[in-house]
């Protein structure tokens, strides 16, 4: 594909550094492509997982009242049960196994997915299960008084969640979202078992031609490390941004007197 090797020759009795340079140049394109898929799957998986997590987390906040009609109690009860099972199953099994089960299992129920879409799906669903718990915790950490003040001005449950509680919950769980993104960058490596051409898979490909596993995976490790370091810095920057300015400007047009009429 992106082979740049026209002028390169294989290091004959090359030492470690020579091989690293050679492999980087020979397989730069493959590493780059693997890097791109890793980032893309991790990012999309984290965002999609957050969406799933927010849906599950919001549903967990619905209180069933004694006065609610039976169908509503049943519907919400069953919904909560399904989401609970989902969270337990996907947190309780390794993502590598989930990838195998989905890749080879889905065709049996008539859904045939190529490796790459399957990879996106596995990471999203897996992240969703973890984010559901984080979101629930994030919502719980928002003061109950925020809900009540929203109710007291006549807002509906989902309006309160959307405008008041979720923005605060998101800020509270931003560190966990960032953490999950970093984990996903690393854990997409398990998708190599279903031959998704992410970074780990690229490392395997590059290593297998000359049997240079150490050199190849050294390059892979450096790339992973760069990705995770950059991503966690970006997340921290976003957190700072969300916290806003430390002070505010006074509005000059108003008067401070306790005057006026209702």
């Amino acid at each position: 594909m992106f082979v740049l090797s026209a002028s390169l020759s294989v290091p004959t009795d090359g030492n470690f550094a020579d091989w690293v340079i050679f492999l980087t140049q020979e397989y730069g394109g493959i590493f780059l492509e693997g890097c791109m898929w890793t980032l893309l799957i991790a990012l999309v998986g984290t965002v999609a997982g957050c969406v799933i997590g927010f849906i599950c987390g919001s549903i967990q906040t619905i209180e069933i009242q004694d006065t609610d009609p039976l169908y509503k109690k049943l519907f919400i009860g069953i919904l909560k049960l399904i989401f609970n099972i989902y969270v337990e199953v996907f947190r309780g099994t390794p993502m590598m196994v989930q990838a195998m089960v989905m890749y080879y299992g889905l065709p049996m129920i008539g859904i045939s997915l190529a490796a790459l879409p399957c990879g996106f799906l596995v990471v999203s669903i897996n992240t969703g299960a973890y984010m559901a718990e984080s979101v629930r915790g994030g919502i719980d950490s928002v003061d109950i008084g925020q809900f009540e003040a929203g109710k007291a001005i006549g807002m509906k449950h989902f309006e309160i969640l959307r405008f008041i509680v979720m923005p605060q919950a998101i800020r509270n769980i931003m560190p966990q979202i960032g953490n999950q993104l970093v984990i996903n960058i690393k854990d997409t490596s398990v998708l190599n078992v279903i031959s998704v051409s992410e970074l780990f898979f690229a490392g395997k490909t590059a290593a297998s031609v000359y049997y240079k596993y150490f050199e190849s995976f050294f390059i892979v490790a450096v790339i992973y490390l760069c990705l995770t370091l950059v991503i966690s810095r970006i997340i921290r920057f976003i957190e700072k941004k969300m916290d806003g300015a430390a002070d505010y400007s006074l509005e000059s047009t108003g008067s401070t007197e306790l005057k006026g009429e209702v």
Binding site: D143, A149, G150, K151, A152, I153, G154, M155, I164, R171
Partner: peptide, 24 residues
């Protein structure tokens, strides 16, 4: 008003001991 509890609540304001301003 149970069926439209939000509309009912909007006609009755409430001021809390702990303020409960929307922090965000």
């Amino acid at each position: 008003y149970k069926m439209n509890i939000e509309q009912f609540r909007s006609r009755m304001g409430m001021v809390f001991q702990s303020f409960n301003l929307f922090n965000n």
